[in-house]
Amino acid sequence: MIETMNTNLLTEQNRQNEMQKLRSSIAMSVLLVSFSMLFATLILSFVVFRLSSDMWPPMGMERLPLLFPVLSTVLILVSSLTFEFFVGALKKADTELARILFVSTWVLGLGFMATQFLLWNQMQELGYVLETGIFASMIYSFTWIHAAHIILGLAWLLFLIPALKQQVSFSSFEARILSAGKFWHFLGIVWVLLFITLFVV
């Protein structure tokens, strides 16, 4: 009797978790469409300026050294990878490993921010300030807007800390973890697009 009640409760709990997962995945998809449109508009304006200029970079400016942008790209991509490993470790209930991977994801995110600051410093030293024309303006403002979202993403990741406790069931945190993960990967993809448009093309 009690056993059947327990299994009933368990299946009910599972159903609730499943529904929660479904709910967050729909909401996250819509939200990511919104964020994509924000960055798509920025990239649209890049395309307009790029296509209407005779040469690029315009006004005799030189391309920026690629060191820091490449570093940023590597850091954010690796942090996406460590996040996936973190999810895998949690699934296997390996809390120790999960903690390490979670902290490394977060630290790599911080590292990304650090390389961004280094990039901005370097640009200033090379004489590119916000007002030096469309080329510099775009690099500054797009990376600023993206960095603001990285800060949001780092804050979002903090909400996963409760999942790092011992003896926590993965499924009760699954929706939350997947949502945060989607946002984090999304920011990585946006950065790759920005890297290609702003620094390479």
Binding site: V30, V33, F35, M37, L38, T41, L42
Partner: peptide, 9 residues
């Protein structure tokens, strides 16, 4: 959801 962010940008 789709178009407000365009104005936002």
């Amino acid at each position: 959801a789709i178009f407000l962010p365009v104005l936002g940008a």
